[in-house]
Amino acid sequence: MVLLGEIGAAQGLKGEVRVRSYTEEPADIAAYGPLRNEAGTKTIEIERVRVTPKAVIARIKGVTTREAAEALNHTKLYVARDALPEAADDEWYVGDLVGLKAVSAEGGPLGTVAAIHNFGAGDIIEVERTEGGPSLLVAFTDDTVPKIDIAAGRLVLVPPEEIEASDDGDA
């Protein structure tokens, strides 16, 4: 399952909700058909969306009151991975990256990709180190991740010099 968004607060009195959409175009979250909650126990169908300057507002099938909309607050919206289109050559789904082995430019093991985060300033790759210790958190850029090979199950990670220096005890 792939996370496409999350339902937020109720909007108005007639059952609409705000949605945080993780799709490239926010309104496209409605184009994937029925979505599932995190446990996979509930199906959520978005009947229509409208994008405002502040939020994506959605009408959920069967939700007609503010109280019903409020009950959906914080519901994460998932779709099966096979329902997604194939990624372009220079694009990847986060779910395809998590679990890849991270190696240095020379091929030495660094760890395993644990997550990709985005706190608003760009993507950050989190790598659990092979030798233990705190995870590496590195900006996910072409310079720091110059090669990704999904088929081989690995990516090349080039941490900035500041991180390498702190690893040696120099910083």
Rank of each mutant, 00 (worst) to 15 (best):
I29V: 08
I29A: 04
I29F: 06
I29E: 08
I29P: 00
I29K: 08
I29D: 00
I29R: 07
I29L: 07
A30L: 04
A30D: 06
A30F: 04
A31V: 06
A31G: 10
A31N: 13
A31R: 11
A31H: 11
A31L: 08
A31E: 14
A31Q: 12
Y32C: 04
Y32L: 05
Y32E: 01
Y32A: 00
Y32K: 03
Y32S: 01
Y32R: 01
G33M: 09
G33I: 08
G33R: 09
G33N: 08
P34W: 02
P34Q: 08
P34Y: 02
P34F: 01
P34T: 06
L35G: 00
L35V: 02
L35P: 00
L35K: 03
L35R: 02
L35D: 02
R36Y: 04
R36H: 07
R36D: 05
R36L: 11
R36N: 09
R36K: 11
R36F: 06
R36I: 00
N37L: 05
N37E: 05
N37R: 04
N37Y: 06
N37D: 15
N37W: 02
N37Q: 07
E38P: 02
E38V: 06
E38H: 03
E38Y: 03
A39V: 05
A39F: 08
A39N: 06
A39I: 02
G40N: 11
G40D: 07
G40V: 00
G40K: 09
G40H: 06
G40E: 08
G40Y: 09
G40T: 07
T41M: 12
T41Y: 08
T41H: 10
T41C: 07
T41F: 09
K42M: 14
K42Q: 15
K42Y: 15
K42N: 09
T43F: 10
T43P: 09
T43I: 11
T43D: 15
T43N: 14
I44L: 12
I44E: 05
I44C: 05
I44S: 05
I44V: 15
I44A: 01
I44Q: 01
E45H: 02
E45L: 11
I46Y: 00
I46F: 03
E47C: 03
E47W: 07
E47H: 04
E47S: 12
E47N: 09
R48T: 13
R48W: 10
R48D: 10
R48L: 07
R48H: 13
R48E: 14
V49G: 04
V49I: 04
V49L: 04
V49Y: 03
R50K: 11
R50F: 03
R50H: 07
R50V: 11
R50S: 13
V51I: 14
V51F: 07
V51D: 13
V51A: 07
V51Y: 06
V51P: 10
V51C: 04
T52C: 11
T52Q: 13
T52Y: 11
T52K: 12
T52M: 11
P53C: 13
P53E: 13
P53D: 12
P53N: 12
P53M: 15
K54M: 11
K54S: 13
K54Q: 14
K54F: 14
A55L: 03
A55C: 02
A55S: 12
A55D: 15
V56R: 04
V56W: 03
V56E: 09
V56I: 10
V56T: 13
I57V: 15
I57K: 05
I57Y: 04
I57C: 04
I57F: 01
I57A: 08
I57D: 05
A58S: 02
A58Q: 00
A58V: 02
A58G: 05
A58W: 01
